[in-house]
Amino acid sequence: MKYLFLLLCFSFSFAQNSDDKMYSITYLNQFKDRKSIDFPLKEYSRLLVNKNESIYQIYNAMHLDTLKFEGTVTSDDRNRYYSFNKHSIYFKNNTLKYNDVIYEDEYYYEETINHSWELKDEEMDIKGYSCRKAITNYGGREWEAWYTLDLPINAGPYKFKGLPGLILKLTDSTGSYNFDFYAITERELKPLKKYHHLKPKSEWINTTRTNFNKIKANYESLSLNEKLNYGNTGPKIKVKLIGGSDDSELRNPKKVARAKDLNLIEIDYKD
């Protein structure tokens, strides 16, 4: 009963939403981006939506960006707010702007999204919201989405949208990537943008989605010392632990994730 009351209150507030408000939607992402990982990795992500505009980032990355923007970030913050994924996805209507970092470079591409959703009759309740199922293909994977008409927001996690309601659950058919709705709140509107960039816009590497995914796959399959020398034409660099807990087990080269172990979210770069 209490749940129903809260839901009604939120639905009413949704109907009253004014221009100076936005929605902050949090998802729990669980993913296995390496085949060798036994347990899925977890990160919270945040989707900020205002009408036809949205920005999506991993929560820790968004938090770190805010601290960098305010000029208060410390090395401890970088440790505390670590995120496996650093990308940001800004949507305006159906066009997205994707930014990501590979070592010392910031990459950028634009993409027009028109998912061809197949709507299903199946229904499921997620945190008190009645959801319906839809299926689409994207990036070389088949995706199953659960959306709710209770929140008529055309948005969802990562690059997914185009349904008559907010996507509350998204899973790929191999179970490697899962996005689960965690919370939604109404907030004062602020500019929907990434608040800190590694490089000024003039230095972003403008590319295509496929090319970016090829570069990312190539980089992710390198060892650490190879990564530190990525794109380096000068003297060779290596890293050494000079104090602290022994990481020799971690440095075992046999454990280095190689290309065949990669299980990136978009796999159609291999085609």
């Binding site: 003297p235 660099i237 050494k240 632990l241 104090g243 602290g244 807990s245």
Partner: peptide, 23 residues
Amino acid sequence: GCPSNSTYISASCVSGCYSVYTN
């Protein structure tokens, strides 16, 4: 607690002071 030519880096299962060396 790290020497000044290194940075303290903490990951979920390990932490320490890391330096880079050039050849």
